[in-house]
Design a protein around this nucleic acid. Structure first.
Lengths: 404, 404
DNA sequence: CCGCTTAGTAAATAGAAAAAACTAAGTGGA
DNA sequence: TCCACTTAGTTTTTTCTATTTACTAAGCGG
């Protein structure tokens, strides 16, 4: 979401009504099967208010009624669930080596996905191709019959705050791209909320927002691919993405880990990316740009020079994770990106270092959950779709008016 | 503020009323001299609603009317200001070398302050002394005649999230201290909101919250003293403090800058604090614990070994600042703590490094405002007082009911 | 002096949630 | 089977808040 801090919050009755409808929808989304009575308790609203709110959400197709609950000595409540048949969310990621597209339900379940390999080209050509692919995706059966709520695009670089501009994508060679504007002419009939964000931030958002049950208070997604980026989201009810004044929050690949170290493409020395990233591994092992890094390395994991290179990179990754722990201290860390496919030779040293040191300061034994995503292909695209949904439920999107 | 994420937000009419009153108060606090009409425009409320809200805030002593504004072809509006005569906020910082106390107005103006030097002792003894000093502070003329809204305590270590427990204060030798509970018996008659937070987080909060006019969207306060800590606040209307799941957010002193480097007191190697901190400078120059670091160094700034030590420490500080820029990317950085008194020999290299590298990634010339606080003695204490006010205006404190 | 503009207040209205009273639908015990 | 009891959910009435509309207040400029 490229939107940011609104003016000071005040509101009228209409605002209050919508706030409460959003709260109801959000509660059911996070805890499927709640009854009206449960909602009334948790949201601190009266049964009457909840009843009216649920009714209109049912009427508009956001919710559906489920089975009767077990009785505990009284009338059993009726379970409520998201109505996942009605709407669809579109998400896409523009990556260095390809386009990833998803169409998913309100619960984040991917209905259809598509991965198109391609070599980096201009924003205009990319937008045209993405437009065609999205158009094709929308023609597929499970998507076509649903109402589309909007489209989110994840991009590999910092996004300007408050306006949808990709400031820089070093690995694509792009700068100051208004990608949504380029895409719009190719999808003239796609209504709903359109937004774009950095891929790691979208991924982080989706990982938190589509979670049900026990929801962490904050989450950092570390994207380890050609470069290294991260995204932090905070707040379990409406996750807030940390962007920074220039969109540079989470650019952990350019934190300095080795003052006076190797030169980075950014011009500084000793950046984390000079130690751990797709390009630093290529450079260390002399792997050409044309070859697929992962495919060329997977058969060579036993070779000593590969092992040494990956171990060193892994140690640097471990330092990055620990530094994240001591600066953001998220409730959960999710590690994704193409490099995770290299497995233990890279990740072993990283996780070992992190686990060995994460409790030094407090002297406790609490472990911060750290999950490695093996296949992170569609995570960012799905996250961008999540951001669309959130902007409708919590934001100022007109689509939120259908709650009434 | 040691409170965190509430349950999902829904509300009744009372909640709405209070939200709007808070918004009005907040607008006047941030922009003194607004008229009712200005507020109606900015808060998107009608004149009637604003009029009623202002009236009750006037009645309760939160606001006062000021002079008539210049007319622009119609009836001139009446300026509104915070009523600073009515209330007082108390803040205190427990530091390694002393206790700092302030009493300040709603606008953050310090009415009375006190700095008590002392050597670290037990939490119990410290609480008793602080209780006496606060009691004395409250007897002073400008404080005594006002209604006290509460007390905020800033402490030099990570605070547990959601509960007021100081988990660890390495430089005091404290662990798991419920400081408010220890203090309570010594101030039985002090009503209002009590809270505690980490000193860098309190400082950051205060620096943002008491700002008027053009308010940054986020701010990081870096506290460079015996150790190095930082606090980040985000959101210009209600600043949100990043705490982390264990309260470790902002512990930048324990980010690793030199893998395999010197041993830190935390047991890890190459922490930032081994390169730049009060204790690392003491260690490098052989300055005993009993001596005051700053006083012993100020006359020696010309000595070559001192210069080399401070330059190296400064360079490490510069790396820390740059890493902050690439992880949080705050709108503004404020650098405080006792080490800033060492001036150019330490700060020169730090600021040079930061300024030389902060624009590498985007290739722009935008400078992130970086302000060095020469005398940061009462910043954290004042920030803790700010947190008290914020918890009343925006939070669930009963004192917020006086808005009606 | 008078039309015009803007600030602020007062009275009437609309609309939201709450409160109270109700119906619905189960339990369990006699 | 009946019936007291419990909990879920709805309907009706009431309360409360912001809005709307109409008004008064107070300046400007011709």
């Amino acid at each position: 979401m490229s939107t940011s801090n609104q003016q000071h919050k005040a509101g009228d009755l209409h605002f209050l009504k919508r706030l409460n409808r959003s709260a109801i929808l959000e509660l059911v989304r996070r805890t499927p099967g709640l009854t009206r009575a449960d909602i009334a308790t948790q949201a601190q609203l009266t049964k009457a208010t909840v009843g009216a709110g649920v009714q209109s959400l049912l009427n508009q197709g956001w919710l559906r009624e489920g089975e009767l609950q077990k009785s505990s000595g009284g009338r059993p409540g009726r379970a409520l669930h998201l109505n996942e048949e009605q709407h669809v969310l579109l998400g896409a990621e523009v990556g260095v080596h390809g386009l990833r597209l998803v169409a998913c339900t309100l619960a984040g379940q991917v209905l259809v996905s598509h991965h198109e390999h391609l070599v980096p080209t201009t924003p205009e050509v990319t937008a045209e191709l993405l437009g065609e692919l999205l158009h094709a995706l929308m023609q597929e059966a499970p998507v076509k019959k649903r109402r589309c709520l909007g489209l989110g695009i994840a991009l590999p670089g910092p996004i300007a705050p408050n306006k949808p501009v990709l400031r820089l994508a070093p690995n694509l060679g792009w700068r100051d791209v208004r990608f949504l504007e380029l895409l719009r002419p190719h999808l003239p009939h796609l209504e709903g909320t359109w937004l774009m964000d950095n891929e790691a931030k979208s991924a982080a958002f989706g990982e938190l927002y589509f979670r049900t049950g026990n929801i962490p208070e904050s989450l950092v997604y570390v994207s380890a691919g050609t470069g290294i980026g991260s995204g932090m989201v905070e707040g379990s009810h409406l996750p807030l993405v940390t962007r920074g004044i220039q969109g540079l929050a989470g650019e952990i690949g350019h934190t300095v880990l080795q003052p006076g170290g190797l030169y980075c493409h950014c011009g500084n020395r000793g950046c984390a990316e000079t130690l751990v990233s797709g390009w630093s591994i290529r450079a260390a092992l002399g792997i050409a740009e044309e070859e697929d890094l992962i495919e060329s390395l997977l058969p060579r994991l036993d070779e000593p020079d590969v092992q040494v290179t990956l171990r060193r990179a892994g140690e640097a990754l471990g330092v990055l994770l620990l530094n994240l722990h001591h600066t953001q201290n998220p409730s959960e860390i999710v590690l994704g990106g193409s490099l995770t496919q290299l497995g233990a030779p890279l990740l072993g040293p990283a996780l070992d270092f992190f686990k060995a040191n994460q409790n030094r300061l407090l002297g406790t034994t609490q472990q911060v959950p750290l999950r490695v995503v093996q296949d992170s292909t569609f995570i960012a695209a799905r996250g961008a779709a999540a951001q669309v949904l959130a902007s409708i439920i919590h934001g100022s999107s007109d689509l939120g008016d259908t709650f009434f």
